[in-house]
Amino acid sequence: MMEDQHSPALRQGVDFRGTPNATERVTEHLRPGKKRAPLLRYIRINLPRTTRLLLLFVIAVIGMASATIALSDYEPFPFAAPLLWCVVVAAVIFVAVGLLTKNRIWTAGLGIAAASTLIYVGGILGDAPYVWNGASITLAAVWNITLFASLGYALLYWALRYGMIVAAPDDQHFMD
């Protein structure tokens, strides 16, 4: 309810009345009885385009590593190849959509990372291409990259949801 029809600011929809930080210091994320917020709440990075590219890069790495495993002679567990190719195709689509549109596709990326992690776990239970299972050092490294990249994506996704980082088209909207 607008109290003062003659106020130019109010007519523009700018209403700071009752806004605490108009007159005093306002801190966010404070838990009741605490003086300070949780440590990671203090970190806010505003590099939206770089972050978007980083997220796409990590999924691209998962896709490339999965393709390398699928093309090798080594099968981590029975019928792993079709699953690996599913991850590769999903990663290609993800990267293409990420580069060509402005859609927020990060939860879909988490699905790809989760699928890749599940395949890795399947490999542990099966016959994963580790050096001690007879795989070459390079193939074993690529196999482990599927895990590290997936965990890396999950970490970035968490940071994104937590507000530490933002990916384009979003922005931290720093005022100062």
Binding site: A22, V26, T27, A37, Y42, I43, F174, M175, D176
Partner: peptide, 30 residues
């Protein structure tokens, strides 16, 4: 320039009607 930082390490909300009293931007870390 306000609004162009690439990172911030504070939980303090930007003050309205601010007169750039930068001293008020201190964050007392633990």
């Amino acid at each position: 320039v306000p609004g162009t930082a690439w990172s911030q390490f504070t939980v303090q909300r930007a003050a309205k009607h601010k007169y750039y009293t930068v001293g008020g931007e201190y964050d007392d870390y633990s």
